[in-house]
């Protein structure tokens, strides 16, 4: 309040000064024209700024469609989406992305299955179990985890998870004649890296959701004789359901869209997504081939981008729906 008063008094002084300088003192009836021009001008500027986001989304959508659709017409929709052979540089090129799409879907699913329980329980620890001092240490750690660049996760996956998987692979497939060894650069490694990467997203959003559960609901449950643990799992988590679902969907979005962390970890050959196969995701396909692609190959990569974009837009619309629905329930 003091701040306001000081600002107000400053303003009054400066206004007085203005009035003394000007012959026609600003009357309450006569609006000053210079000022109303600036007022309107600023209003338009702000309105334009507000619509930059809308314009960007429109531009991105249009450009993804314009650059992604031609390849579909040239190759054929069915052949592209359901074809399994990706050989863009062969003399008789083939552009089937079925395995690539399948890898992204299954990979995301499993990274969610691994990452979400760990993330959710960590969020429970932070909001329900931990004392303030412990939370003070754990929370910044999670925030730091969220800030680490994805490429750093990539190098760790490449140098820690891959050799580990390589050893498992070597012992599992020692007698196999059909399996192609890829030194641990396989589907599982990529899933593990993705599961770690979605942790901070899941932890932060579900913690916010858990903290938003009113205390009296917990107190009522405890008063009825439920143990603290029963309260957490039977009352608090169900009450925070919509927020937790949002957290999961956000995690899905992050896992689907991640590129740089898994491009070197996943092996990058187009294969059926089996645990020890070298695989290619939608994102890693674009990253690894865009630099030298041309012609139809390049257009096909844009089609992969378009498929990814459609996934992401679907996820965004789902989040929007959940948030709206959740808001209504709370009211």
């Amino acid at each position: 309040m003091e701040k306001l008063i000081s600002i107000a008094s400053k303003m009054a002084i400066s206004r007085n000064r203005n009035c003394q300088n000007i012959e026609n003192v600003d009357s309450i009836n006569g609006k000053s024209k210079g000022k109303s021009f600036i007022e309107n001008f600023m209003k338009y500027i702000f309105t334009i700024c507000g619509f930059v986001a809308v314009a960007s989304v429109a531009a991105i959508t249009i450009y993804m469609i314009i650059s992604g659709v031609p390849a579909i017409f040239k190759v054929g929709l069915g052949e592209m989406l359901f074809g399994t052979v990706w050989a863009p540089t062969a003399s008789n090129p083939s552009f089937g992305i079925a395995y690539i799409i399948l890898t992204s879907i299954i990979g995301t699913l499993f990274s969610i299955i691994i990452g979400v329980p760990i993330g959710l329980l960590t969020a429970v620890f932070l909001s329900e179990v931990a004392s303030k001092n412990v939370a003070k240490f754990v929370k910044p750690a999670v925030e730091l985890l969220a800030g680490i660049p994805s490429i750093v996760y990539g190098i760790l996956g490449l140098l820690i998870i891959n050799p580990l998987m390589g050893k498992i692979e070597a012992s599992l497939f020692a007698n196999s004649t059909t399996h192609i060894m890829n030194g641990g650069a396989n589907f599982i490694s990529a899933i593990l890296v993705l599961a770690i990467m979605i942790l901070p997203t899941v932890i932060n959003s579900s913690e916010t959701a858990l903290r938003a559960v009113p205390t009296h609901i917990r107190q009522a449950s405890l008063a009825l004789g439920a143990t603290p643990t029963q309260t957490i799992f039977k009352v608090t988590i169900p009450a925070a359901k919509s927020g937790i679902i949002t957290a999961i969907v956000l995690g899905i979005g992050r896992a689907v869209g991640e590129a740089m962390a898994i491009v070197l970890v996943s092996g990058n050959a187009v294969n059926i997504p089996l645990p020890f196969n070298s695989v290619r995701f939608l994102t890693t396909g674009i990253v690894s081939e865009m630099s030298y692609a041309s012609g139809l190959h390049r257009e096909a990569l844009f089609t992969i981008g378009l498929v990814l974009f459609i996934f992401i837009m679907a996820i965004n619309i789902i989040i929007n729906k959940i948030l709206k629905g959740g808001g209504k329930v709370e009211r």
């Binding site: 507000g50 619509f51 986001a53 809308v54 960007s56 989304v57 531009a59 991105i60 450009y63 993804m64 650059s67 956000l250 979005g253 992050r254 689907v256 869209g257 991640e258 590129a259 994102t283 674009i286 990253v287 865009m290 844009f302 981008g305 990814l308 974009f309 992401i312 837009m313 996820i315 965004n316 989040i319 929007n320």
Partner: peptide, 25 residues
Amino acid sequence: RLIEFTTETLAGIPSIIYGLFGMAF
């Protein structure tokens, strides 16, 4: 609501899509 929805959408678009868009546009 439109502006807020598009802002949320922008926040959810993965960086590789921005890369493709930036390169094309």
